[in-house]
Design a protein around this nucleic acid. Structure first.
Length: 281
DNA sequence: CTTTGGGCCTGGACGC
DNA sequence: TGCGTCCAGGCCCAAA
């Protein structure tokens, strides 16, 4: 479900709730999400104190005292909510797979109907070797991401730029929505070969990615289906999509009238892509 | 090596 | 209302 901006929104919501607190009790309502939880997961997590929460692409890294990391990926439908002490009005649903009671009485509830999400718990030293993380490209909101970096990665890729952008080894955190939005912002057609972009276009694209992600985070992420912040608040960015989900509608930039300025939906690598054939070349 | 397509799951929207 | 079909924000893995 969530792409980088939604995961970052969740990180920001979670950090003040968890930092410095101890995870008093961990209850698993099933032993597997997408993958089996590591052996002894609940026991090892209980009693741990949270020192910091980081994010890498779409991954949450909950850092624990004793140099361990609780890794969380939300998959497509994962949600985290915080229930206040004594607040059982929300109840525990059938898809609330992991429930962590915090030492202040609140509870962190991980809900994931489709179970594409997963968790892990490992020593911080193993971070760089972790099979899910060691192939990740730079996070676009970190200093390691730049136009020069992107140019270096794209020049070897014959695949379409939109498909390439979604490769987590190229841009960690990019997903289907923001790939379309970034390309629109950069005025580049999603079907272009990645290696065929001019330096100027790559530079525009790198800027567009950072800008779109930054604006989406400022808006609290996008609320499609059921993404929401841990507090329950909804994100707003979906109302600012320029192309995603707008097939047939007039382009916000050029679509004052006529067919040229209508948003098109195509399928690339099995995923929907939205773009303006007139603005994006 | 790279690239593509199917699979994993469930729920919601839509058409009849 | 009920049923079937299609679609969905991600990722892995097998096959070509």
């Amino acid at each position: 479900m969530p792409e980088l901006p939604e995961v970052e929104t969740i990180r920001r919501g979670l950090a003040p709730v968890l930092t410095g607190r101890t995870l008093a009790r961990v209850v698993l309502n099933r032993g597997d999400l997408r993958f089996p939880l590591p052996k002894g997961f609940a026991h090892a997590l209980s009693g741990a104190t949270v020192t910091r929460i980081d994010r890498l692409g779409k991954y949450l890294l909950v850092r624990l005292e004793g140099d361990r990391i609780w890794l969380i990926h939300l998959g497509m439908s994962g949600r985290i909510r915080i229930a206040d002490d004594g607040d059982d009005g929300i109840g525990i649903g059938v898809h609330d797979h992991v429930i962590v009671t915090i030492d202040d009485g609140r509870r962190l509830i991980f809900c994931d109907p489709r179970r594409f999400g997963f968790m892990d718990l490992f020593a911080a030293d193993d971070l760089v070797r972790h099979p899910r993380l060691n192939g990740l490209g730079p996070d676009p909101l970190s200093a390691t991401f730049s136009a020069a970096y992107l140019a270096g990665r794209l020049e070897k890729k014959a695949a379409a730029i939109k498909v390439t952008l979604m490769d987590q080894a190229v841009v960690a955190g990019m997903g289907n929505i923001y790939a379309s939005e970034s390309l629109f912002r950069a005025a580049i057609a999603p079907t272009r070969a990645a290696c065929g972009l001019a330096a100027k276009e790559v530079s525009r694209l790198a800027k567009a990615i950072v800008a779109v992600f930054t604006e989406a985070i400022d808006a609290g992420g996008s609320t499609l289906r059921d993404h929401r912040r841990p507090s329950g608040e909804l994100g707003e960015f979906q109302s600012r999509f320029a192309v995603y989900g707008r097939a047939g509608e007039p382009c916000l930039v050029c679509g004052a009238g006529g067919d040229a300025g209508r948003i098109q939906r195509i399928v690339q690598a099995g995923r929907a892509t939205y773009y303006c054939p007139s603005c994006q070349r």
